[in-house]
């Protein structure tokens, strides 16, 4: 078996374990690529706690995570629920929801910059139709983060498919039983559908959280982190430190904190999932 899995073992050691340990080591050093790393102990970590731009990036990222992930899961569930109702055009509709996530993120970002354009963009043109004068979206520190959250909702196609598969696994007998008991449509959704798709909710939440913590290309292309650092997300600030200022040590300590955060969130989600995720569907 080892002979067969050796490509992966090599990749795992060379592009995962070794970089992970190297990054831990760098995080205790000052390293600009030109001179060898210089050990500085916990200095990078201490400096991070006092770096207002870093704390701002943490706040921006938490904002994005808190709004885009639950809204994304909810949107995906609703779309999947609607798609599951009828069959006419379903293949076409499913494709429309999925296509946005197969196109390059840079193309998506450029397209949405034009949609959010304050004078001639699609969104403000639509708002004008109902008599609302739209904000300047990406140009406004108040609206820049909501703009990126809105754009993120366009990218929920993956979760839609996961929910659709889960919805089709709900045994029909459960709905019939609920109807016999006199449950109306809302109660059937709340007491039958939602409990049965909780594994899909957990999966969407988990992948959504991990992706949202790493959000980068959208802000990098669309706003460059602005205006006034309002969309400077965690990985964007990490990228700038590493690849613009060549502060590899500082960037590595940021990377390790991110690593820790993702592990903690994953563990918490799995621990609490025993209480709200129902694994009854699979035999």
């Amino acid at each position: 078996m080892l002979a067969f899995i050796s490509p992966w073992i090599l990749g795992f050691l060379g592009f995962f374990v070794y970089p992970l340990l190297l990054s831990l080591y760098y995080s205790f050093t000052e390293y600009n690529l030109l001179q060898p790393p210089k050990f500085v102990g916990l200095t990078n970590y201490v400096n991070l706690t006092e770096d207002s731009h870093y704390l701002n990036a943490v706040g921006n990222t938490l904002y994005f995570v808190v709004f885009s992930v639950p809204l994304g899961v909810l949107t995906a569930f609703i779309i999947a629920f609607l798609l599951n109702q009828q069959l006419r055009l379903r293949v076409l509709l499913r494709m429309i929801f999925y296509i946005p996530i197969v196109v390059p993120i840079s193309a998506t970002a450029i397209l949405w910059m034009w949609i959010f354009n304050s004078n001639w963009g699609l969104l403000n043109n639509l708002l004008a139709l109902i008599g609302i004068q739209g904000p300047s979206w990406l140009g406004s520190p108040t609206w820049s983060k909501p703009s990126l959250v809105i754009m993120q909702l366009w990218l929920v196609g993956g979760s839609v498919l996961i929910f659709l598969a889960a919805l089709q696994d709900v045994p029909r007998a459960l709905y019939d039983a609920a109807m016999v008991d006199g449950a109306n449509a809302v109660r059937r959704v709340w007491h039958v559908t939602i409990p049965m798709v909780t594994p899909a909710i957990l999966f969407s939440l988990l992948t959504g959280l991990i992706a949202a913590f790493q959000t980068f290309a959208n802000a990098w292309i669309m706003t460059g982190g602005g205006p006034i650092r309002s969309t400077e997300f965690y990985v964007l600030y990490l990228y700038e430190n590493g690849f613009r200022f060549f502060r590899m040590g500082y960037a590595s300590s940021m990377a390790w904190i991110l690593f820790g955060a993702v592990v903690v969130v994953t563990v918490i989600l799995f621990r609490t999932s025993a209480r709200w995720v129902y694994y009854g569907g699979e035999g």
């Binding site: 592009f15 995962f16 992970l20 760098y26 790493q214 590493g242 590595s252 990377a255 991110l258 993702v262």
Partner: peptide, 8 residues
Amino acid sequence: PWAVTMVP
């Protein structure tokens, strides 16, 4: 996250 190993 890929960002974790990006620098090294």
